[in-house]
Design a protein around this nucleic acid. Structure first.
Lengths: 343, 343
DNA sequence: GACCTGCAAGAAAGCGCTTTCTCAGAGTCT
DNA sequence: AGACTCTGAGAAAGCGCTTTCTTGCAGGTC
């Protein structure tokens, strides 16, 4: 009968050099190798040197999985947003990723696509794979958001707040759109169409609040809402509805929608801004290059991502995350809006 | 003296329910819980039911780290690109991410930013965190690419090939730009400027090859190269150089550069396409909306991402990755190019 | 020289899973 | 009834690290 030999490598061979191999080769214990690799070694320099030399010779690199298990942390964070194809979210991601990388953290992405109902599940699932989460969930119902925020710590919210359950980085859409509306008002426009965002999304609600607030103060101003969406095609599809309102100015939910709108208007030979003024929101990088350059409210998306990381990092380190921040959009006046022409 | 009690939980408490707790609570062994959770259980239904019930009651979810270590795989893949702010790469990422998600894989992102030299390190580092890698590295020297490809398996290359060392999904930039050049030629342009991409990038080299090939066949055509880059500002900065070539048509390295160029041209009151025709490359979503709508060569970036996932998946499963694919750009003629006006 | 101190390095436990191995007990066959 | 095969479920090893605990040994003190 065969001698009972301890099963090694669990039957599978994974190939990569392990800490044990380095230890054996260098004639030390795995503990020593670990300490050397993590700069916690306090013994003789010769030993450390030998370990280091052996490690590079054997092409050793510690296993992330093993390390994660032992340490209880993954050195990764997640970013969940409803639509990664939107340049605004990409900018946030870019800011987050770049900054997190500097601290040795990588980011995992989660695109909740269209499905609002799947969002909490996705957030939970992806959160379990890493150490923290940045969540953009404009359409998630408040109670679910609070629920998530209280269970998924550490996490930071972008564009939403959850009653203090998690640090929040928000944008003052309300004031932003109010400024845009004021801009149009000052240009003489008295009838304005608003091509809205997704129904039930908070980012849309804030905008409506802003519009309402300004309208309430100016009796001679009328704002008509037109169903829109988040993407260029939504703007494109809203063109007829916009034209039929006879409004002389249009505010779009975001730049993407505004751009689609511009495309549709042009197709129908409606001149912008001569016949109708159009403004977007976000100031995505292309807003200034389209025809005509788009008046919009600039939001510092990259900065939002950067700040999100700083807060996450504090939270991971068990420190205070710092105060919540509310970013104020800045109106960028470009050529897509102009003084209202007499009819 | 205190009785020697085995140290539990390594001193730290991580809070989450473990498989052992579920097992204890359900009165079974951890092995059984594991089997039930992974649908490998073959025993009595009552037991399975009890385990499942206990698991949801205790809010149990297996630890990804532990699972990764035991299984030797992470259910994640990485995407490394030189600039995640470029819509073209974002589209690839989007296609990759969406498709991978359907198979339960998440994607980790790596932005190699400007630094070509750091790219191999980044790729290696991030690759060790997951099961496979999609690499876009237009500027990496061939030998390094081959080196990487042979050591980082499974991986797939996008926009580059490495002598069969890894599956490659490429775009026929050469033919693409040749078609664009032909388009301008047919419009009567005989002197064309090419605002190039990053020096030493393969994607730029392919384009130059295409230009040269067409130029060689048409003696009455002159193409002047102008240094450019990858971003809109590079195009913007190239404006004076372009104007001074006196070319009547311009081909830009990509849409971003073309858009910047358009912006700069407009600022100097040079009308497009009346005075000069401009074409880009990639057909990013905004290309059709800018002013004037940009003639460009359309590349199916999302599809590239989708195909990248399919190949990665095959590789992960130990299957054949399928044939390499070369995507053919399709010329999209829009308003930024027009017949050359007599001087 | 016995005793204590301090320090360098190893032994081993633990992280939370998966999976092989093992072994009762039930069922089958002659 | 005894031998034999299944089969269901648990024991335990293993994944590759980190870190606590332990120990051997050199140097210092009285």
């Amino acid at each position: 009968m065969a001698a009972k030999v301890p099963r090694k490598n669990n039957g599978r061979s994974r190939g990569a050099t392990t800490i044990a191999q380095v230890a054996a080769e260098a004639g030390v214990s795995p503990a020593t190798v670990s300490r050397v690799m993590n700069d916690r070694f306090v013994g003789e320099d010769k030993i450390a040197e030998r370990v280091r030399e052996t490690a590079v010779r054997l092409n050793y690199a510690p296993s992330y999985s093993a390390r994660s298990l032992a340490l209880g942390q993954t050195q990764a964070v997640a970013f969940v947003a409803p639509d990664l194809r939107n340049p605004a979210f990409q900018a946030i991601l870019s800011g987050l990723s770049t900054t997190a990388n500097e601290d040795g953290y990588r980011v995992l992405i989660g695109d909740s696509a269209e499905s609002v109902s799947e969002e909490p599940l996705l957030a939970r699932e992806i959160r379990r794979r890493c150490d923290a989460l940045v969540l953009c969930a404009p359409r998630m119902p408040d109670h679910e958001l609070v629920d998530l925020a209280s269970t998924l710590h550490p996490m930071v919210l972008v564009n939403r707040s959850a009653a203090g359950a998690a640090p929040a980085l928000t944008v003052d859409y309300r004031t932003g759109i109010e400024s845009l509306l004021k801009h149009l008002y000052e240009l003489g426009h008295r009838h304005i169409a608003y091509v809205g965002g997704p129904t039930h999304s908070m980012s849309d609600k804030y905008r409506r609040d802003g519009l309402q607030s300004f309208t309430a103060q100016n009796a001679d101003l009328a704002v008509t809402e037109v169903p829109g969406g988040v993407a260029s095609e939504d703007g494109f599809n809203a063109v007829d509805a916009v034209i039929s309102t006879k409004a002389t100015g249009v505010l779009a939910f975001n730049d993407l929608v505004a751009i689609g709108l511009l495309g549709g208007l042009q197709e129908r030979n409606v001149r912008v801004p001569e016949e109708i003024s159009v403004a977007g929101f976000d100031d995505i990088p292309f807003a200034r290059y389209i025809a005509p350059p788009l008046t919009t409210a600039s939001v510092p998306h990259e900065e939002l991502g950067v700040q999100a990381w700083y807060r996450l990092r504090s939270l991971i380190e068990g420190k205070e995350p710092g105060h919540d921040m509310v970013f104020q959009p800045r109106v960028e006046i470009r050529a897509s809006t102009a003084v209202r022409r007499p009819d």
